[in-house]
Design a binder for these strands. Structure first.
Lengths: 232, 232
DNA sequence: CCGGATCCGGTTAGATACTG
DNA sequence: CAGTATCTAACCGGATCCGG
């Protein structure tokens, strides 16, 4: 149940016992980003088995990093929330991510593409300010993916809420984007940008010109895109 | 050989693949602190098996965090040095250590006592400024330890070099310290201090009064002792 | 001493299926 | 929705041994 200790009194070692087990830092990124429910966390760490996720959540609870809340009106549903100690992990996760953005080579990163993670991240960080006040629908078509993962829709309601669908919601589409997953991911993590992807033909836009022209603005980038990459 | 990937393009996940495997962060702390040789690193991570240490060093080399240098005058001896990317991990290790100091509970920390790690850390951070110009010898006696680990000597030469012995060097001793390992470790990581340990009788001093009175100054503390602990 | 390699048993993690 | 159960594969710890 409990992990083997490093048997070192050094705070780095004590913290590493809690943080540096497999999947834990990735899970913490998801918690710091605001996910609270079991299946919400699963979407953020889809390759982690539910058994291990459950185990890690129990370990983080025992370490005082998260606490579980039972909703009074739905006692069978639990929510996992960061404690003060957990919220204080944000600088740690950020430091790890900034180092990764700066020093991990590009190629291995772009071998780990995942449309659902990308669309989920984009939904989370979308900036609605440059978009029209009315409901706006943007269709993403990844021409290199199989049918089940090919089409995604971002729906920005007039009140600013953002929804993500991968089945056709049936609304009129304001902007069609035709691209491939690698191009869109590279833009998202700051290795490319909308202008150059359009220029070299890997990103095609159809529909409302105003929505297309402001894409670099409404597409909030990865929080780590601000960090310049130094690795090749 | 290579670790299983998280298959996420997120920089946090990419960095975690390199950093968050067992022992890696503790090993990096040792490298950031300045150790370069295989057996020097072993002293800093004594419970890590040499096979795993060797494997981790190869992985960190492949990740571009360290590089090995063969000394030209002794080509059979290798040195492991941080690259630019490796030196840039210092803020990450510091952030982890500061979080650990602030939030990991005291009791588990003080169950991981180790006199060799403690003395080694003290040697590394000792502040020679408040000490006499002549050679100064300080004897540590841990009354709770078995004979083989009971006595240690710090020898500060007049040129400022510091040596650590655990066999009697035969020099005249300027200051005798009689304490226990838990007390000394608590002082080192900032959970106690020299004054209160002397006051409650867990630290006894004999010998030169001036060297004893300046102990809180020449005993450079753990780099993380500046961080206040909030956990119980 | 230095820098590992090898072997073996126990623990951890992954894959898949299934349940209240 | 929120997890367990089960089985297998990978990893790790500890001891021992080896070549320079």
């Amino acid at each position: 149940m409990t992990n083997a200790s490093y048997k070192q009194f050094c705070p780095v070692a004590m913290a590493a016992e809690i943080l540096c087990t497999r999947w834990t830092v990735v899970l913490l990124r998801e918690l710091v980003a605001g996910s609270t429910r079991f299946n919400e966390l699963r979407r953020g760490v889809p390759r982690m088995s539910p058994a291990l996720l459950s185990k890690r959540l129990r370990e983080l609870e025992a370490a005082g990093v998260i606490e579980r809340q039972r909703l009074t009106d739905a006692p069978e549903i639990e929510a996992y929330r960061l404690t003060d100690a957990g919220r204080d992990l944000q600088p740690v996760i950020e430091a790890i991510g900034m180092w990764g953005q700066k020093w991990v080579e590009t190629e291995p990163t772009l071998e780990n593409l995942d449309p659902e993670l990308l669309m989920w991240d984009m939904r989370r960080n979308l900036n609605t300010d440059p978009l029209p006040q009315a409901r706006t629908v943007i269709e993403f078509l990844y021409s290199d993916l199989p049918p089940a993962q090919r089409k995604w829709w971002l729906i920005v309601e007039s009140d600013g809420t953002v929804d993500l669908c991968h089945i056709d919601p049936g609304f009129d589409v304001d902007l069609y984007l035709n691209t491939n997953l690698r191009t869109m991911t590279a833009i998202w993590i700051g290795l490319s940008d909308v202008r150059s992807a359009v220029a070299n033909g890997t990103l095609l836009m159809t529909g409302r010109r105003d929505v297309g022209n402001s894409m670099q603005q409404w597409l909030g980038l990865s929080p780590f895109a601000v960090q310049e990459k130094l690795a090749s």
